[in-house]
Amino acid sequence: MRGSHASCARLTDETRSRLFREVVMPHLDDAFVFARWLTGNPTDAEDVVQDACLRALNGIERYSGGNARAWLFSIVRNTTFTWLAHNRPKTLVLTDDLEGAARDAPTVSESPTPEAEMIAQADEALLHTAIAALPAPFREALVMREFNGLSYREIASIVDIPVGTVMSRLARARALLIERIGKEMS
């Protein structure tokens, strides 16, 4: 943590610690939930979030006010990608291939869809598998929206995509989940 003294010469350790407690710590639970879905398990999420928070502490002078949670999420997201590239290179999915799919197929497929009552009864294991199977860009949008309660604008700024793309990714993610539930439960 004391490695980047050159870049943080302007802030005292005391100020950095205070900023860290006020900017980063309140969003630790959210960051953990997010990282758990991105990495797939709590142990890796703990490593990733710790790493991300220490990066946030080192770069706390780059926090320029505004949405602290979105700022932390960007760091957690980048840290996760670095971590995944290092530890599980095969799980990385290129987003380029997906944009076409997201744009062309935002609608629910024509195959028989499950009734709302059936969806309501989907259990944890089924939902977990279905979410884990989503392509990463769809999954992260869904997780930030459903489990972190982030707004479209926040998601757009974290992922650095237009709000319209957030909507189409969410539409696609949800359609895929509903399809999968229909397939597994019928």
Binding site: M25, L28, D29, A116, E146, F147
Partner: peptide
């Protein structure tokens, strides 16, 4: 209706969790 049911199922099956106390303590 299907989307609402999905939303309800997700919220029911994945209640909000906290970061591990050990992580919290290490960062503090």
């Amino acid at each position: 209706a299907r989307h609402l049911a999905l939303r309800r199922a997700l919220q029911a099956q994945f209640p909000r969790t906290s970061a591990p106390a050990a992580l919290h303590a290490r960062l503090q």
